[in-house]
Structures are given as structure tokens and as C-alpha cells.
Nucleic acid binder design. Structure first.
Lengths: 113, 113
DNA sequence: CCTTATTAGTTACTATTTGTAATCAAGTAT
DNA sequence: ATACTTGATTACAAATAGTAACTAATAAGG
């Protein structure tokens, strides 16, 4: 395979990798409004429990979100943005603005392809 | 599977889907500087020819980029941003700024997981 | 003419990631 | 004990991405 020569800033590249993971941006977007529970996120964006579980762990490891357990009945687990996670709000607002300016067809949510 | 109830704006969702496709944001970022050729993009970001070919087709269909053929020797094919594609610059600049504020470890480009 | 070189892809095959549906663990109520 | 709820995990199937070899078009060299 062709080697990578034209250097990309590795920090920018990592940021893009985080945001390019499927569902991650939508999960953060949900939490911008308020902290959210596992099931709420699942219902809101339609992600599978398996992948959501994986994403939440990654995002916690990246320091984007924090996980709080309330031993109520049944248990309540609340995910919320850290300062680092909240600082992505401008990115998501720009995407929001761009989509309202440039995306028309609301016929299918079947993605890009 | 749990149904999607909490409605997301379908235009925002589509925008996120476009930008969440692996490599798409990096390809646009490359073209922000100047039009780019197939091999240049490949070298710069390290994407496989197969996937780059697919992404460029999708991005052209989405109206983000245009493809120009110059029958020189050997053939030169130049990809450049449309107005729609260029209008994503603020999103990418925000990601750039965020990464310089919040991403530290430049040790591994091995992504998020 | 035949071989080589260059760019822009495509193809067959493998590996990784995601989706699906069933299941599990903890806690409580019936 | 059984059932219910939330937050997950698991096994298996489907979709997506990576790898390396190959093709098409054009031209230069011998």
C-alpha cells in the first residue's frame, strides 16, 4: 500500500477519528441538551445496544463523557458531557447550520450511499 | 431492536452521516488547501485506493466535490470542492481548533479504540 | 512490435466493524 | 419463586474496510 507521506497533524487526525466513529457525534449531540440514560440514547438515535455500549466506554476513556450510577429502582445510569465533551458543541452547531443550509432531501435517512 | 422515538432532524442526521464516513472529512480537509489528485490524497491520508475511489464517487454524488479530467500524459484527474463542499470549512476548522485545545497524545495514530 | 512506466482505478479475498436477537445481572415488586 | 425494569453482554450474520494483484489508457525506449 502506498505510504503516508503528506503529513497530517496527528491531533487533528485523532479528533477526526473520534468524530468519524459512527454514532459518536449523535450521542454527543443528544447530551448537549441534557444528561441522558442508556435507553434514552438508544431510542433517540436508533443505535444498537452493543455498539452504544462500546461507544460510551470509548467516549468515557477519551474523557468526553462521565458515567454516574444512581442505585434507584431500577438502576439509573446517567451519561453526561465533561468539559472536553461540551467543548465540541461549536463543531456540532456548525454541522447543524451546514445541514440546514445545504441538505435538502429529508426523504431517506438511509445515509450517504 | 428498540425503536427510534426521540426525533432527530433528518437533515442534521444526514450531515452527520456524511461526515462520519471514514476518510470523508480528511479528504475534504485536503482539498481545502487546493484541488487534489487521486494519488495525492492517497499518499496524504493513507486511505486504500478501493475506499478512496468509493468515497470520491459518493462525495461527487452528494455534490461536495467535482472531478475534472485532463488528458495529459499520463492522465491527470483533479478533484476539487464545490461551493457546498467548501462550505464545510468552518466545521473542519472547529475540529482543528478543538484538537489543538483538547488532544494531547500524538504518540499513536491508531485511532480511538 | 514489445516491454516498461505512470495514473487512476477495479477485483478477489481477508479482516474488522456493525446489526440482531437472545440472554444475563441486579434490584424490586407481586 | 416469578416477573419486570434498566443496563448491559454474547453468539452469530451482515456490511464495510484493508490488501495486494491486476486492468485500461497513453506514451516512451529499444
Amino acid at each position: 500500500m502506498r505510504q503516508k507521506q503528506g503529513e497530517m497533524c496527528p491531533r487533528f487526525e485523532k479528533a477526526v477519528n473520534i468524530l468519524s466513529q459512527r454514532w459518536t457525534a449523535l450521542v454527543i449531540y443528544q447530551m448537549l441538551e441534557s444528561p441522558k440514560r442508556f435507553g434514552e440514547i438508544q431510542s433517540a438515535i436508533g443505535v444498537s445496544g452493543k455498539v452504544l455500549s462500546d461507544r460510551l466506554k470509548n467516549m468515557e476513556q477519551e474523557g468526553l463523557i462521565k458515567r454516574d450510577v444512581y442505585p434507584e429502582t431500577p438502576v439509573v445510569i446517567e451519561y453526561s458531557l465533561t468539559e472536553k465533551g461540551e467543548s465540541l458543541e461549536p463543531v456540532l452547531r456548525d454541522i447543524e447550520n451546514w445541514s440546514s443550509d445545504w441538505i435538502e432531501h429529508p426523504d431517506s435517512k438511509e445515509a450517504v450511499k
